[in-house]
Design a protein around this nucleic acid. Structure first.
Length: 1165
RNA sequence: GGGCUUGUAGCUCAGGUGGUUAGAGCGCUACACUGAUAAUGUAGAGGUCCGUGGUUCGAGUCCACGCAGGCCCA
């Protein structure tokens, strides 16, 4: 620093900034400017170069919507631990990222353009559509960047990863290729909503559109499935000769030819009922859920006339329950195929258990057809039940209903029929002879004696929003990642992850892994990462793992195309030309790995067949789950960086990401790298409105983060969110709560700093590390707060290490408000305004007061800085800035310009004195009791009293109190403390049973023992105390119960003849006598108080000296003042006090209890 | 319907391994204090610890079954 600057600063007398009032948002703005100008974030990473790294992965947000208040919450959590670890010396790089693909973006674009998916390829080309998506996706980037900055979230947004970039996609391809090579990527099918009329699958979002579900009347059938060899099953043994049929209800009779199992609920009660077939009248036994009996049988027919049924009008079916069992007893029962058109390849047709079975309607038995129901598919797969499939012309397995919604030829008389009447034309449906397929099936089953009940049933059924025709649940091709193959490993790896809260890891996530199904990767959309698989019609396929590979395959194909063209097959020219377009683009910036460009690349199989790209895109969750690799364009680049930053030490997102990002990160890492992707994870709860409702723009209860930050500033907002509820609990967000935090915590801390600054400036105090008052010479009060401070550093550190910012924040808050401000500073105020001032030399006690408070504030500024980065910075800079303005010999006490560049304070264990902390707790408790006594007898604190009496039964308590006696005395304005020992004989003791000690010993006799102990008198207690044993006689026992001292608690709760208060084993007695002398002191203190008020009202400076004139018209008052003159003058900094017979109206009149002061104060020049 | 989670004062939250009188802050009422003053102290009012059963000498705490809110999944 140039010399003139030094001189300039040296002449400045004010060193600490003092503030009249504080605007928290403005404070944050100023700190933000400071950070920007001095690149503090960059430095905080840079200064840790070479240190161990702490890796954080940013879960990419999508910038196609405005950020909300919950993002402030989520990002605060992330920020806290990154800042904390930086303080701990780790290098914490935080690469930002953006999630750019997916359905929400497509929908937004469609809304903006006023188009539907239908129009893509007709009204708008895929190319134009995707270009629009690309624009839209970063629409709110500015707002996001603004929020990031304003809330103080430090993340590198200069060089974020963006999921739509070619490099990113190329990394994804390489991961997919690896999966493919490990045989973990395969083509299969899932049951999805499918519209035969439109020829397309529907997303769940399309199914949720208004008007999709309509009430329809369907023909429903309770079909009868004949049990094979009933004698083989315990349940049916007694009925071995009977025709036993299991009843199952369906609202989609057309699926019955595809039935391959029946599903029952394990703990549902079933009955076997003897009765008749209602259509053929043949005797039969049927099986159904017990609670549904009433649905099919009337009370009239119960135990009815079976013999006479043939001759009756057959309106009432006689019935009788002949057996009963649980669903699990039926498991494995085999039955005859109901409609035997197509045979499965492996054994089917048996009863299995499923958790989705209910007894709300139907029969409690679910007809299960794996090709036409999602539950059916899942439960059948789990039980090894095959689907009913036929082979198409290519030998490929296909369902018995084709993609137009017609039965295949194999289904006998129904072959070629549409399964739903709505698929026929209006004219066809109008024909009087027209019968829906469901009805034909019902008639057939009735005739064959396989239907128990056929009726129309009205229920909601989904319809295609495009064609208005019913949807089928239908098996559709999909690409899957075979996560089930790696399940055990994924479960094992999860057990090494530290989940916060733990239950999310073991419960929600753990269960999810236990019940893992293969990850369906396919999405039939446009804006997303294309699946890099090219396939021929006969099923040959190639998976591409990089751009180079694709170029190579493309060139090879072109050579083959060329050869064919030269051989005269000019139809190949088109493919060759399109490939040329790609090859050219791939040499330049123009290359785009999205659709439609990748769709226009054509490859050749080894056998010379054309390979076209599978049109699927991949699940966007794969995009984000692959970010550990793709953000670095790994494995194509950055091996070093990747190796150093994998896996992540820490990630955090909302708990709703459990099956989203958390899972996809874990799955990819586990399957491809045999590693976890993250070691520690904090899953956060939701931010609700103050009434506990979900925030939504529609309801108008969403909180605008910018407005909140603008009003309260980021620190109070962050502090409130963190300390109010643990991150994983839902937060009821209430703006008033932020205000409270601001007043209570930040206000107190600000006041404490201002108080320090005020006096430190008056005294020109600057901490000097080389000339501190040695710790062992500090007062009890100072050593106490320093002990508390070190305990705080230790415990706060533990909570941060433990990923619990809530507890850390609450600890800091309690320290600042309760210990530092309301005890240490309050009791120390006097130390700051007495002693020397201005002369340049401080008394050791005053110096100690400054040093202690400065130390506390400085440490607090650091401990709080992860949660409140701006205020922490502000406080740190206010405390240290001026020390950096004075050039020193390179050993500056506070070399860092920012608290975020400092090293975490080491705990000074030798300063932790738990005995002293206990002592001070006693002092606080005693003071509280004395205040309470004073209050009860209306004796104000300004009135000194002579004595308190404290009964102490053990030497430890006495010693602990003795350490802090002066503090107690000054706090409560008492002259002396006297201890009353056990041997004084005046104590009245009380005895209480110690349940914890007695419980295990006496068990059921506890009540009697407790009663007997409470009944012990003084003499009994003395016996116990002297012999350490006492025999209690119990009411219902001959033998006495022996107790020892540690099994009871003995308290001195009364001092006969004194005013006594006690709480928690501590008792204080107060001498209320007010002698004349005490009275005079009290008056003097009152007088001082009034003068001080007057000084303040008159606007005098704290350092002004004054001259007092008082009208001499009351002897009591005058005597009191004369006797305490020196004290008064010192307190109010008076150079003199004149008693004047008559002030002649120049005086101010002030009330003081029974006196009326007529007084005048003047500043002495 | 399933999994997870929450339920304690008007509000926001604490309450290791069960121990008899369940706490704090805010808010409310009253009083006090006053060189931190939009602060502070003391006292008071305010609780079926979501409900019902159970285990136990003893349950806010452990178990079972419910109820209500939330998230995820069907």
């Amino acid at each position: 620093m140039p010399k003139f600057a030094f001189q300039k600063f040296a002449n400045i007398s004010v060193k600490y900034k003092e503030y009249k009032n504080l605007s928290y948002p403005k404070l944050a703005d100023e700190v933000l400017d400071f950070w920007k100008e001095n690149t503090i974030f960059e430095q905080s990473v840079h200064v840790r170069e070479g240190n161990p790294s702490f890796t954080f992965f940013e879960g990419p947000p999508s910038a196609n919507g405005a950020p909300g208040i919950h993002h402030v919450m989520a990002r605060t959590i992330k920020d806290i631990f990154c800042r904390y670890k930086t303080l701990r010396g780790f290098q914490v790089k935080r690469k930002g990222g953006w999630d750019t693909h997916g359905l929400p973006i497509e929908l937004q674009v469609e809304k903006e353009l006023g188009i539907t998916k239908e129009d893509i390829g007709t009204k708008i080309s895929i190319e134009e559509y995707n270009a629009k998506c690309r624009q839209t996706v970063m629409k709110f980037t500015d707002q996001w960047n603004d929020l990031t900055e304003k809330m103080g979230y430090w993340v590198d947004l200069e060089d974020p990863y963006i999921t739509y970039e070619n490099n990113y996609i190329e990394s994804l391809w390489s991961l997919l290729k690896k999966l493919y090579d490990k045989n973990l990527l395969y083509k299969g099918y899932t049951i999805q909503p499918y519209s035969p009329a439109a020829g397309t699958g529907l997303s769940s979002h399309e199914l949720n559109m208004p008007g999709t579900y309509k009430e329809v009347k369907d023909t429903t059938i309770v079909a009868m499935f004949k049990v094979k060899t009933p004698e083989n099953y315990t349940v049916f043994k007694a009925l071995a000769q009977e025709d036993i049929r299991i009843l199952a209800w369906t609202t989609t009779p057309w699926t019955l030819p595809a039935n391959s199992a029946l599903t029952v609920g394990a703990s549902i009660d079933y009955v076997v009922v003897k009765t008749f077939n209602p259509y053929t009248y043949a005797p039969v036994h049927v099986v159904l859920a017990k609670v549904l009996l009433g649905k099919y049988f009337s009370e009239k027919g119960k135990d009815g006339d079976f013999e006479g049924f043939a001759d009756s009008d057959k309106k009432v079916l006689p019935w009788q329950v002949v057996a009963e069992c649980k669903g699990r007893d039926l498991e494995g029962v085999e039955y005859e195929q109901l409609m035997p058109y197509v045979q499965p390849k492996t054994p089917a047709f048996r009863v299995i258990l499923g958790d989705f079975v209910t007894t709300e309607d139907g029969t409690g038995v679910v007809h299960t057809s794996p090709t036409f129901g999602a539950d059916d598919f899942r439960v059948a797969q789990a039980n090894g039940i095959p689907p009913i499939m036929v082979q198409d012309e290519n030998g490929k397995d296909v369902p018995i209903v084709d993609r137009q919604g017609r039965f295949v030829a194999e289904i006998g008389e129904f072959g070629g029929r549409y399964v739903k009447p709505e698929y026929y034309s209006v004219e066809e449906q109008a024909d009087p002879a027209f019968r829906p397929t469901d009805v034909l099936i019902a008639i057939k089953l009735k005739e064959e004696g396989k239907a128990f009940k056929v009726e129309k049933y009205e229920h909601p059924y989904p319809h295609c929003w495009r064609t208005d025709k019913p949807v089928l649940y239908y098996p559709l091709d999909s690409w899957f990642i075979r996560t089930t193959a790696m399940k055990e490993r994924l479960v094992a790896l999860n057990k090494t992850i530290n989940w916060q809260p733990e239950s999310t890891g073991t419960g929600r996530f753990g269960n999810w892994l236990e019940n893992l199904v293969d990850w369906n990767l396919s999405r039939s959309r446009y804006w997303g990462t294309p699946l890099p698989i090219w396939r021929s019609e006969s099923g040959e396929e190639v998976c591409i793992g990089s751009v180079a590979e694709l170029q190579e395959a493309c060139r090879t194909a072109n050579e083959q195309f060329q050869a064919k063209i030269e051989a005269g097959e000019i139809e190949w020219q088109e493919y060759l030309s399109k490939n040329e377009v790609f090859l050219q683009a791939s040499q330049s910036e123009k290359m785009d790995l999205h659709r439609p460009f990748v769709d226009e690349i054509f490859l050749m199989s080894a056998n010379g067949n054309l390979l076209k790209r599978e049109t699927d895109l991949i699940d966007v969750w794969f995009d984000s789950g692959a970010m550990p690799y793709a953000q670095w364009h790994y494995p194509f680049e950055n091996h070093d960086i990747f190796n150093h930053s994998y896996p992540a030490d820490f990630i955090s997102e909302g708990v709703d990401q459990t099956r989203g990002w958390f899972f996809t990160l874990h799955a990819i890492a586990g399957m491809l790298f045999d590693s976890v992707a993250f070691k520690n994870v904090v899953s956060t709860g939701l931010v609700l409105d103050k009434n506990g409702n979900k925030m939504s723009k529609r309801l108008g209860n969403a909180v605008d983060p910018f407005q909140t930050l603008g009003t309260y500033g980021p620190d109070a907002t962050r502090w409130y969110m963190i300390t109010n509820a643990e991150p994983w609990d839902n937060l009821k967000f209430n703006l008033e709560g932020i205000g409270e935090v601001q007043r209570k915590f930040f206000g107190t801390l600000f006041n404490t700093y201002n108080f320090y600054a005020l006096y430190a400036n008056l005294d020109g105090f600057t901490p000097d590390a080389t000339a501190r008052i040695p710790h062992d010479q500090l007062s009890e009060l100072d050593r106490w707060i320093l002990s508390k401070l070190n305990t705080l550093i230790k415990e706060t550190g533990e909570q941060y290490e433990n990923y619990n910012p809530t507890k850390a924040g609450r600890l800091i808050q309690d320290f600042v408000c309760d210990q530092l401000s309301n005890w240490h500073v309050r009791l120390s105020r006097r130390r700051f305004w007495t002693g020397s001032s201005g002369s340049g030399t401080l008394t050791p006690d005053k110096q100690a007061a400054y040093e202690t408070l400065q130390q506390c504030l400085l440490v607090v500024s650091q401990l709080m800085s992860p949660i409140a980065p701006f205020f922490g910075e502000w406080l740190y800079k206010n405390l240290t800035d001026h020390s950096r303005q004075i050039p020193v010999d390179g050993s500056q006490a506070y070399p860092h310009v920012s608290v975020h560049l400092t090293d975490w304070h080491q705990v000074e264990y030798e300063q932790i004195d738990t005995d002293l902390e206990e002592s001070m707790q006693l002092a606080q408790d005693i003071s509280s009791l004395v205040h309470s006594l004073r209050k009860g007898h209306k004796i104000k604190v300004r009135q000194p009293l002579s004595k308190i009496l404290i009964p102490v039964l053990n030497p430890k308590t006495r010693r602990q109190i003795e350490r802090v006696v002066p503090i107690v005395l000054s706090e409560v304005n008492i002259k002396t403390v006297e201890f009353v020992q056990d041997d004084s004989g005046i104590l009245k003791k009380k005895i209480k049973p110690n349940f914890k000690a007695l419980g295990p010993k006496f068990g059921s006799k506890m009540k009697q023992v407790a009663a007997a102990i409470s009944a012990m008198n003084e003499a009994d207690i003395q016996v116990l105390e002297t012999t350490n044993e006492f025999a209690l006689s119990l009411a219902d026992s001959e033998n006495p119960a022996y107790i020892t001292l540690h099994e009871v608690e003995i308290l001195a709760e009364d001092v006969p003849g004194w005013l006594v208060a006690s709480e928690g084993g501590l008792t204080v007695a107060l001498d209320m006598t007010i002698t004349d002398e005490l009275r005079q002191e009290g008056i003097a203190r009152d007088f001082v108080n009034r003068i001080q008020n007057l000084r303040k009202e008159s606007g005098f400076d704290v350092t002004d000296k004054i001259q007092i004139s008082l009208q001499d018209d009351d002897a009591t008052l005058t005597d009191a003042i004369n006797s305490q003159l020196a004290y008064i003058c010192q307190e109010v900094q008076a150079v003199g006090l004149d008693l004047v017979p008559d002030m002649n109206g120049t005086a101010v009149q002030i009330e003081m209890d029974e006196f009326l002061l007529k007084v005048k104060v003047e500043v002495v020049a």
